[in-house]
Design a protein around this nucleic acid. Sequence first.
DNA 1: TGCCCCCTGCAG
DNA 2: CTGCAGGGGGCA
Length: 293
Amino acid sequence: MPELPEVETIRRQLDKVLVGSRITQVEVLGNKTFEGDSKLMLDKLILGIERRGKALVIKIGEKDVEWGILIHLKMTGQLIYEKKNSKGKFEERVVGGHPTKDFVSSLPSSHTRVMWKFEDGSVLYFNDQRLFGWVKLVKWEDVESEKFILRLGKEPWEMSKEEFRNILNSTKSIKVRLMDQDKIAGIGNIYANDALWEARIDPRRSAKLLNEKEAKCLLERVVKVLDEGIKYGGATAMDGKFVNLDGLGGTYQDHFRVYQREGEECLRENCDGVVEKTMIGGRGTFYCPVCQK
DNA sequence: TGCCCCCTGCAG
DNA sequence: CTGCAGGGGGCA
């Protein structure tokens, strides 16, 4: 469910609350989510929180032995950090991921798959409704050679316009290509739709038919909407349900260009188009048929 | 390169 | 009840 801006928001939040904590207990519920020997995480310190594309990497260790906890939230994964005071009252709750009532319910919930408990009594929950997400423990030196990490393309910010043009050499639709994590990492359905609207490009067009100017513009707009997504803390649709929580209630949804705006007026000045919805590669695709060519 | 699959839950 | 959900892997 989360794309790069949502995962980056979660990363920044966890970085503030988790680094320096010591894991005292780990619980794995069910056998689908976690891969590795969970006992190896016991007594380790959280050293840092990193991100690779849409995956999080929590660096843990003790002395010279370091491990990486790879986490992919896929469509419905959530990370919820909860800290209570000595009276058992919520002191802090940091949430990120798929917007369900799990965010405001008592934990663990029926969707909790992994729990990490820390020395100070705080707990990190990995919840996942649809069981697509995964958590994997690997030695730190093996993180970069993990299959998922190894395949990832560059982040949009690191990509030159020449490199971007090269990855567009495909008969696939431009939208499908933008979302191909092996080619460029981090873009999902929301930001692909919105970046294409920004660049005035029809998402159904074949990637290889974009000219140099269009490709350059598109890369700029990808960076623009991702930056904006991060600035607004990602997109969530919890509609104020974050009351009393120091949460990750992002507000990018208030800035959607076309995503989920089917039937509404195109936001471009002097365009009288109405946003349409179609399916590309099995994913809902929103665009303005008037100004996106 | 397209399709189907992994799953659960919710809106229409 | 069907279709759809912000992801990605495997298959031919």
